[in-house]
Design a protein around this nucleic acid. Sequence first.
RNA 1: GGCCACGUGGCGGAGUGGUGACGCAGCGGAUUGCAAAUCCGCGUACUCCGGUUCAAUUCCGGACGUGGCCUCCA
Length: 470
Amino acid sequence: MTTPQLKLYNTLTRQKQDFRPIDPANVRMYVCGPTVYDFAHIGNARPVIVFDLLFRLLRHVYGAGHVTYVRNITDVDDKINARALRDFPDLPLNEAIRRVTEKTETQFLSDARALGALEPTIQPRATDNIDQMQTLIAELIARNHAYNASGEVLFDVKSMPDYGQLSGRNLEDNLAGARIAVEAHKKNPADFVLWKQSSDSEPGWDSPWGRGRPGWHIECSAMSERYLGQTFDIHGGGLDLIFPHHENEIAQSRCAHGTHAMANVWMHNGFLQVEGQKMSKSLGNFVTINDLLETGAMGGRAWSGDVLRLAMLMTHYREPIDFSVRRLEEAEAKLRDWQRAARGAELSGGDAPDPSVAGELADDLNFHRASVALDFIARKAGRDEGNAKHCLAATLRFLGFGLDSLITSDDGWQEPPHIASAIAARLAALNTKDFARADSIRNDLASQGITLMDYKDESGQRQTKWEMKR
RNA sequence: GGCCACGUGGCGGAGUGGUGACGCAGCGGAUUGCAAAUCCGCGUACUCCGGUUCAAUUCCGGACGUGGCCUCCA
């Protein structure tokens, strides 16, 4: 059984379409990564997880060596400057910025790992691609798509006849309700900055247009071209990036190269709320990934990365999510069921996921249907039918979940001695029908998170297994 | 003001122009000294109002609600 045709919803056409890579031997995907000025919050986790799932599926369909996934790290940004000045006022600016970005980047990578995300193939930094950005800007000026005004280089949106295709906006729409004061030096209010001047107290690079720094959108155009080419397969990010960020990336890349497309498929994940409210610092429901992993910020306890991953994937990636304690609890229970059913399976490197699960995912990442298929396998695995246990384990691993959230008596090598002796004492009590004592031992262990399970072996003799949460 | 999503049973959540996906929780039962695990059974849901249709939760229009974008936010 082969994986069915992959279908993806394309924001550009507002339709689900069959996915046909430009080059099946090198499928290329770019996803907008973090701006490294602060801890990533739970909303930031969604694209990390969603596009990791897509990356895994693409590797499955086209081969692990035939997919290139680029996720950038934005380490030049005015928010970073502000944070650097606030946190390290006594250091030279460049040093202060370096401290902020390094620390934040390390934290982000550690969060992403905890969420079960594979490392992207390439994670380029904006500051390592300033030359590429300048080359692109020079090309835009040469082709009359950009102009220099008051020391800024601006993109001229009027020079692109079909500007606005991705977001479905035209320039008049934007004008009508624009709340921004039109800056006098712009030919058109929708024109956006490619390069801006830096004062002495701002980070800057020398350029043909003076010492300055890049605008917000140009880095993605430069880095995607460098690593994926002028036209590539998939570009992803959050819904909020459609306009203006992705719209402007498209404008820059297509106009600089004279191409008809920057990426063929544009994918956007939906937003989330926390306990029914929009997440904001003022409401006090702003949670970082790290808070969830290590503190009691939600529900008064910490949650594993696997639980966060499942809680996020339970809802289709384009739908809004209400992130809640109840959702986390449900994800945890589901994960525990799967892991319990998969217990004891031994995997080798090449074990493939179940075709029905991969098939559901192929339909625009329909994880929820995939999880229904997984429930079916888990049920069979629970009865230990055929190779269901093994299949379940391989599929869980494919989906990015760990297999070891439980410790059980099957892991004899680490069985704490007090459990063994308590079980022996309970069995002895049962032999004398001293149920009160047996139950008190059961309750005692339960208070330590240890669940006892009685069963009969082949000779009809009572045996006891146990398990506890890791 | 303009543009764009979304609104399914206690909760999560898919899907469809015509017999109530599925999971969790709950209830009943089998099994169990009691449990756990497992198994069997149990649910008159599609925001509202119009329209199209033999038939709408599904298509069209409108209302209401929630959220997003239009400002450097996933």
